[in-house]
Design a binder for these strands. Structure first.
Length: 408
DNA sequence: TTTCCACAGGAAGGTACGGTCT
DNA sequence: AGACCGTACCTTCCTGTGGAAA
C-alpha cells in the first residue's frame, strides 16, 4: 500500500486562512462608518481626562458591535500613547455569556482583576461581599475604568450588577477614579426590561447596529477575500452568492464569513483551484448542520426530549402542532428513554426556549369561542439535521423520515 | 357588545446541589 | 459539621388574552 499522508496538501487557493477565523479583527472596519463616528463621540471625553457617558450598543448578532468596540478601544490606546496624553485608561472586558447572573458577572470581574492565585469561587459567597471585593479591586485599579459587558442580556432578570456599577461612583464606593459602562446586546427588549433607575443611567447614549444588507456584506467579504485568498481563487459571483445567502438569512457578517471559510475548506479538500458556487452551497449546508448540533448540545435532557417530540411530528408531516399534542408525544419519548415526565407547564417553558433559540418557529393562534387560543410549533431548523442528530444518539428510538418528502 | 374557550405565561415557592465560612 | 449562599429546574396556582360565536 502506498504510504500517503493523511494531512492536506498545500493549496493554491488560500494565502492566509487566519483572516477568515471568527475572532480575526481587521485593521480597517468596512461599512460601519456611522457607528464608528457615533462611538468616537462617546469615548472622546476620555482624551480630555473625563469619564465618558455610559453607553448601550444593540443590534443583531454579527453586526459588528464587538468588532467596532475593539476597533475604537485600539484607537483610544494608540492616541493616548502617541500624544502622551496623561490618562490612565483601564478596560475590563467581560463576556456575560457563561456568567449569566449579576452575581456571576461580579465574580468574573473580581477574578479578572485579581491574580490567578487569588481567585474566588462562582458561588457560596454572600452577594454583598462579592460587590465589596469588586469595588476593592476597582479602587486598586484607579484611573479611568471602562467596563465592557458583552452579551449583557445574559445576566437575566436581576440587574443589580448594573445598578452597582452605574451608582458606585455617586455612592462613594469608588474612591479615586471614574467608571463607565458599555453594554452590548443582541436583544433590544433587554433594555426595556431593565429597572427604570438602571435604564436611565446605563443608556445615557445608545448606538444601534443595523443588519448588513447584501451590498455591505459583499464589501466585507471582498476585504477578507483580498487578504485571505489568491486573486485567481475566487470571483465576484461567488462573493455575491455568499453575501446574498447571509443577507437573506440574518444579515450577519459572522455568518457570511463562516460560510466563506467553509467554502474555502471544501474547495481545498476537493483540491480545486478555484472556489465555486457548488462549494458555497455545500458550505451553507455544513454551517446549518453545525448550528443545529451546537444548539441541541446546550439543551437540558428534557429540552432535548421536547425537541425530539417536535422532530418526530415534523418527520410525520404533522406540524405545526399544538403544545398539547407535542406534550402527548413528549410523554412517549420520556417513556421510551425511561425518564420521568414533566408537567405541561414546564414543557411550555422548554418550547418557548426552543423558539427563542430559533430551533422552533412558534405562533399564537386564536379561534375564539370555538377552540380558544393556543400556540403552534414547528421546526425552524433543517429536519434532516435534527433527525440525523437524534438517530445518532443511541438512547432514542430512530425517526423514520423516508415516508415523507418534507425538507426545509 | 358581551361571553367564553383553551390555553399562555407570570408569580411564588420547593428541592437538590455545589459552593464558602466558621 | 452545619449554617448559609446562589442557581437550576421544577410544580402549583392563577390571571390575562384575542377573537369567534352568541
Amino acid at each position: 500500500m502506498e504510504d500517503e499522508s493523511p494531512l492536506g496538501r498545500t493549496t493554491s487557493i488560500c494565502k492566509n486562512r487566519d483572516v477568515l477565523r471568527p475572532d480575526y479583527q481587521p485593521e480597517e472596519l468596512v461599512e460601519r462608518d456611522d457607528e464608528i463616528s457615533e462611538y468616537a463621540n462617546i469615548v472622546n471625553p476620555i482624551l480630555n481626562g473625563w469619564a465618558p457617558d455610559n453607553a448601550f450598543l444593540y443590534g443583531k448578532a454579527g453586526t459588528g458591535k464587538t468588532a467596532t468596540t475593539k476597533y475604537i478601544l485600539d484607537w483610544l490606546h494608540r492616541d493616548i500613547e502617541e500624544h502622551n496624553i496623561d490618562v490612565e485608561l483601564n478596560v475590563v472586558d467581560i463576556n456575560c455569556d457563561g456568567h449569566d447572573s449579576s452575581y456571576r458577572v461580579a465574580v468574573e470581574i473580581v477574578n479578572e482583576l485579581r491574580g490567578p492565585n487569588n481567585q474566588i469561587a462562582e458561588s457560596g459567597h454572600p452577594r454583598s461581599k462579592v460587590y465589596d471585593w469588586m469595588w476593592e479591586e476597582f479602587n486598586k485599579l484607579g484611573g479611568t475604568i471602562i467596563v465592557i459587558l458583552d452579551e449583557i442580556d445574559h445576566i437575566g432578570q436581576d440587574d443589580s450588577i448594573l445598578y452597582q456599577l452605574s451608582r458606585g461612583e455617586s455612592m462613594g464606593e469608588l474612591e479615586d477614579g471614574k467608571l463607565s459602562i458599555i453594554g452590548i446586546s443582541n436583544d433590544f427588549s433587554f433594555r426595556n426590561n431593565l429597572s427604570a433607575k438602571v435604564r436611565d443611567s446605563l443608556c445615557e447614549k445608545e448606538i444601534h447596529f443595523s443588519a448588513y444588507d447584501a451590498q455591505e456584506l459583499q464589501s466585507i467579504l471582498m476585504q477578507r477575500c483580498e487578504m485571505a485568498l489568491y486573486d485567481e481563487a475566487y470571483d465576484k459571483a461567488v462573493v455575491r452568492l455568499v453575501a446574498a445567502i447571509a443577507a437573506k438569512d440574518k444579515g450577519s457578517a459572522r455568518q457570511a464569513i463562516d460560510i466563506l471559510r467553509n467554502a474555502v475548506d471544501i474547495a481545498i479538500s476537493d483540491e480545486a483551484n478555484q472556489i465555486t458556487e457548488d462549494h458555497v452551497h455545500r458550505a451553507r449546508e455544513k454551517v446549518g448542520r453545525g448550528r443545529v448540533k451546537d444548539i441541541i448540545d446546550t439543551l437540558s435532557p428534557h429540552g432535548e426530549h421536547v425537541l425530539k417530540a417536535v422532530t418526530e411530528l415534523e418527520a410525520r408531516d404533522e406540524t405545526p402542532a399544538k403544545s398539547k399534542e407535542i406534550y402527548r408525544i413528549y410523554k412517549d419519548v420520556c417513556h421510551n428513554v425511561g425518564a420521568d415526565t414533566l408537567t405541561l407547564r414546564s414543557v411550555r417553558d422548554h418550547l418557548s426556549e426552543l423558539d427563542m433559540l430559533s430551533v422552533l418557529a412558534s405562533e399564537m393562534k386564536n379561534e375564539g369561542l370555538r377552540s380558544g387560543s393556543y400556540k403552534i410549533h414547528e421546526l425552524d431548523a433543517p429536519v434532516d439535521d435534527a433527525v440525523a442528530y437524534f438517530n445518532e444518539k443511541s438512547e432514542y428510538e430512530d425517526i423514520d423520515i423516508s415516508t415523507t418528502q418534507k425538507t426545509l
